[in-house]
Design a protein around this nucleic acid. Structure first.
Lengths: 126, 126
DNA sequence: GCGGTTGTTATACATAATATATAACAACCG
DNA sequence: CGGTTGTTATATATTATGTATAACAACCGC
């Protein structure tokens, strides 16, 4: 899993980290139980501060993507609360699709995009 | 069109304004050519600073949702660039669906959410 | 136990983003 | 002319973001 940070982006570094790790879980680069690099190693590897990595890990923990294992450090551990998760995803979709609808993007086109993306992600895991 | 600002939200006020106006266009509360309240009136009505409203209008202008009419002020004017728009929507969906896929939300469930939302938005305008 | 690791917390600092407050400007309208 | 429009400029306060250094308890391998 290669993590790339765009220092010219308007998106905060810790948020880029979060999104790339979530993307890594979705694309199976990370699996349940896998350990992430320690805050010190990852910060040194990327060339950023330790606290920036720690903030990303804290957000991922709060959002239920990782947990802290006293022996292994931070490990992938997806916490599922289906109704809650659906609600949050719908909220984000409401924003994105408002833009899409305004711009004349049809429902069928959106369904097509969903299929393209889920082909990459592979969908639900057994 | 009633605009509600949550001052306890972690989302910037000008961004909440943008999103609500885009939502208003999607739900047909605003139509092409309709004038938005002036920066001074809207800021007074909501109880925020004039520049905050102006920043929201500037973002909407840059993203192609409104334009400035010397006589009517800021009016709804959706600028369509289909390929560009599709690309941006797909980028946002990549983020949202990565989360969804991690959380075990199936492709079919996402399609269902899309249909629910597009029912409210009404889809493409003739 | 020792040395090194883990996440975590505290403090301090610098920069950028956000929001407010006043003020002024050209362009337009009745 | 008087009042509106968006726009720009300046100044200030607060928060968010990122860095820097240091320390802590808990754990691991030796």
């Amino acid at each position: 899993m290669i993590i790339e940070i765009d220092f010219n982006s308007d998106e905060a570094i810790y948020m880029q980290l979060c999104n790339q790790i979530i993307y890594g879980i979705a694309t199976r680069a990370f699996s349940e139980g896998d350990a992430l690099p320690s805050v010190r190693k990852l910060s040194e590897e990327i060339g950023i501060n330790m606290h920036t990595v720690n903030k990303a890990y804290t957000v991922l923990k709060d959002e239920g993507f990782v947990k802290v294992d006293r022996r292994k450090g931070v490990v992938i551990a997806v916490d599922i609360n289906h109704l809650e998760d659906l609600k949050e995803v719908k909220l984000e979709l409401l924003r994105t699709l408002a833009k899409a609808s305004c711009k004349g993007i049809s429902r069928e086109e959106v369904h097509g995009l969903i299929d393209e993306i889920y082909e990459e992600y592979g969908g639900y895991r057994a």
